[in-house]
Amino acid sequence: MQYKLVINGKTLKGETTTKAVDAETAEKAFKQYANDNGVDGVWTYDDATKTFTVTE
């Protein structure tokens, strides 16, 4: 399945996608991506759209 990440950071904004077997695996990949880019915020997930959002 394909999952999307929407980033609403202080210095980084945008979107990225990943393919993963489940939401938990996608979340780990997205959190690593956010961490690598210095984004630390509040996470939400919408199962209907398979979209994670992180807001600083």
Rank of each mutant, 00 (worst) to 15 (best):
Leu5Gly: 02
Tyr45Gly: 00
Thr55Val: 09
Lys13Glu: 05
Ala34Trp: 03
Asn37Ala: 13
Phe30Thr: 00
Leu5Glu: 02
Val39Ser: 02
Asn37Trp: 13
Gly9Pro: 03
Trp43His: 00
Val39Trp: 08
Glu24Lys: 12
Thr25Lys: 06
Gly9Lys: 05
Ala34His: 01
Phe52Asp: 00
Val21Trp: 13
Lys50Ile: 03
Thr11Glu: 11
Thr49Cys: 04
Val21Cys: 10
Thr11Ala: 10
Tyr45Ala: 00
Ala48Pro: 07
Trp43Tyr: 02
Ala23Pro: 12
Leu12Ile: 14
Gly9Met: 14
Val39Tyr: 06
Thr17Lys: 07
Glu24Thr: 11
Thr16Leu: 14
Thr16Glu: 06
Val54Ser: 01
Asp36Ala: 14
Lys28Met: 09
Glu56Met: 06
Thr16Asp: 03
Glu56Cys: 06
Gly41Ala: 02
Thr51Arg: 03
Tyr33Trp: 15
Ala20Val: 04
Lys13Leu: 08
Glu15Met: 12
Thr44Pro: 00
Lys10Asp: 06
Met1Trp: 12
Ala23Leu: 12
Tyr3Ala: 01
Asp22Ala: 04
Thr49Asp: 05
Thr44Asp: 09
Asn37Cys: 12
Lys10Cys: 13
Asn35Leu: 14
Ala48His: 10
Ala23Met: 13
Gly14Glu: 12
Asn37Asp: 03
Thr18Glu: 05
Asp36Arg: 08
Leu12Arg: 10
Lys19Gln: 15
Gly14Lys: 12
Val6Glu: 05
Thr18Lys: 05
Tyr3Pro: 02
Lys13His: 10
Ala20Tyr: 08
Tyr45Asp: 00
Asp46Glu: 07
Thr53Leu: 05
Asn8Arg: 10
Lys31Phe: 05
Glu27Met: 11
Thr51Leu: 04
Gly38His: 08
Tyr33Ala: 03
Phe52Cys: 00
Lys31Gln: 07
Thr49Ile: 06
Lys10Phe: 10
Ala20His: 04
Asp40Gly: 08
Gln32Ser: 07
Glu27Leu: 15
Gln2Cys: 14
Thr11Gly: 08
Thr51Cys: 06
Lys31Glu: 03
Asn35Pro: 01
Tyr45Pro: 00
Ala34Cys: 14
Glu24Asp: 09
Thr16Ala: 12
Val6Gln: 06
Gly38Lys: 08
Lys19His: 14
Trp43Ala: 00
Glu27Tyr: 15
Val54Ala: 03
Lys50Asn: 09
Thr55Trp: 10
Asp36Ile: 10
Leu5Phe: 06
Lys4Leu: 09
Thr16Val: 15
Thr53Arg: 05
Val21Glu: 11
Thr51Asn: 02
Lys10Val: 13
Lys50Ser: 06
Ala26Gln: 01
Lys31Arg: 13
Lys28Arg: 11
Ala29Val: 15
Leu12Tyr: 12
Met1Glu: 15
Val42Asn: 09
Thr49Leu: 07
Phe52Thr: 00
Lys50Gly: 05
Val42Gly: 04
Asp22Val: 03
Glu24Met: 11
Glu27Ser: 07
Glu15Lys: 07
Thr51Gln: 04
Tyr3Lys: 01
Tyr33Asp: 02
Phe52Arg: 00
Thr18Ser: 05
Val39Met: 06
Ala20Glu: 04
Asp40Met: 13
Tyr33His: 05
Gly38Val: 04
Thr17Cys: 11
Asp40Tyr: 14
Thr17Glu: 08
Lys31Thr: 05
Gly9Ile: 12
Glu56Leu: 10
Lys10Gln: 11
Asp22Thr: 07
Gln2His: 11
Phe52Ala: 00
Gln2Gly: 06
Gly14Cys: 14
Thr53Pro: 00
Ala20Pro: 02
Gly9Tyr: 06
Leu12Val: 13
Lys10Thr: 12
Phe30His: 02
Phe30Ile: 02
Ile7Thr: 03
Ala20Thr: 05
Asp36His: 08
Asn8Tyr: 12
Met1Cys: 13
Lys10Trp: 09
Tyr33Arg: 03
Gln2Val: 15
Gln2Ala: 08
Ala23Trp: 14
Thr55Pro: 01
Thr18Cys: 13
Thr11Lys: 12
Lys50Pro: 00
Asp47Met: 08
Phe52His: 02
Leu12Cys: 13
Glu27Arg: 13
Thr17Pro: 02
Thr11His: 13
Val39Phe: 09
Gly41Thr: 02
Ala29Trp: 15
Leu12Gln: 10
Val54Tyr: 02
Gly38Trp: 04
Asn8Gly: 04
Lys4Ile: 13
Gln32Asp: 09
Thr49His: 06
Thr16Gln: 09
Leu5Ser: 01
Gly9Glu: 03
Gly9Thr: 15
Lys50Arg: 14
Gly41Gln: 02
Ile7Ser: 03
Val6Ala: 04
Ala20Trp: 04
Ala29Gln: 13
Glu24Pro: 10
Asn37Gln: 13
Lys4Ala: 06
Phe52Tyr: 05
Gly14Met: 14
Tyr33Gln: 03
Phe52Pro: 00
Ala26Glu: 00
Gln32Cys: 06
Glu27Trp: 14
Asn8Phe: 13
Ala23His: 09
Gln32Arg: 11
Ala23Val: 13
Lys13Cys: 12
Asn35Phe: 15
Lys19Asp: 11
Ala26Pro: 00
Thr25Arg: 08
Ala48Thr: 12
Val42Gln: 09
Thr16Cys: 13
Ile7Gly: 02
Ala20Asn: 03
Asp22Arg: 05
Ala23Tyr: 14
Glu15Tyr: 12
Asn37His: 15
Asn37Tyr: 14
Leu5Val: 03
Gln2Met: 15
Val6Thr: 05
Thr44Arg: 06
Val39Lys: 02
Gln32Thr: 08
Lys10Asn: 10
Thr11Leu: 11
Trp43Arg: 00
Tyr45Val: 02
Asn35Ala: 15
Asp22Ile: 03
Lys50Val: 04
Tyr45Thr: 00
Val54Gly: 00
Thr17Gly: 05
Lys19Arg: 15
Ala29Leu: 15
Glu27His: 11
Gly41Glu: 01
Gly9Val: 13
Glu27Gly: 09
Lys13Gly: 07
Thr51Phe: 02
Tyr3Glu: 02
Thr18Gln: 06
Lys4Gln: 07
Lys19Ile: 15
Asn37Met: 15
Ile7Glu: 01
Tyr33Cys: 04
Thr51Met: 04
Lys28Gln: 10
Val42Arg: 08
Tyr45Met: 02
Ile7Asp: 01
Lys28Thr: 08
Glu15Asp: 06
Ala29Lys: 10
Ala29Asn: 09
Gly14Phe: 13
Lys31Pro: 00
Asp22Glu: 04
Ala29Glu: 12
Thr17Ser: 10
Ala23Cys: 12
Trp43Ile: 03
Thr25Cys: 09
Asp46Asn: 09
Gly14His: 13
Thr17Met: 12
Trp43Gly: 00
Lys19Glu: 14
Asn37Leu: 15
Lys13Ala: 09
Glu56Val: 10
Trp43Glu: 00
Tyr33Lys: 03
Ala26Phe: 01
Thr16Lys: 12
Ala20Gln: 05
Gln32Gly: 07
Gln32His: 07
Thr53His: 07
Gly14Pro: 05
Asn8Met: 13
Asp36Leu: 11
Asp22Asn: 12
Glu24Ser: 11
Thr55Glu: 08
Val21Tyr: 12
Tyr3Asn: 02
Lys50Trp: 05
Thr55Arg: 05
Thr53Tyr: 12
Met1Ile: 15
Ile7Asn: 01
Gln32Met: 09
Gln2Arg: 11
Gln2Tyr: 14
Gln32Lys: 14
Tyr3Asp: 02
Asp47Thr: 08
Asn37Lys: 13
Thr18Pro: 03
Thr17Asn: 08
Ala34Ser: 04
Thr53Ala: 04
Lys28Gly: 06
Thr55Tyr: 09
Val21Ser: 10
Leu5Ala: 03
Met1Tyr: 14
Tyr45Gln: 01
Val42Glu: 11
Thr49Ser: 12
Trp43Asp: 00
Thr11Phe: 14
Lys19Cys: 15
Thr25Phe: 07
Gln32Glu: 09
Thr53Met: 08
Asn8Thr: 08
Gln32Asn: 08
Thr53Asp: 03
Phe30Val: 03
Phe52Ile: 02
Val42Lys: 09
Gln2Ile: 15
Thr44Ser: 12
Ala20Ser: 06
Ala23Lys: 15
Glu15Trp: 13
Leu12Trp: 14
Ala34Gly: 03
Gly38Phe: 06
Ile7His: 03
Glu24Asn: 10
Phe30Asn: 00
Gly14Thr: 14
Ala26Val: 02
Tyr45Ile: 01
Gly9Gln: 05
Gly14Trp: 15
Thr55Lys: 05
Tyr45His: 02
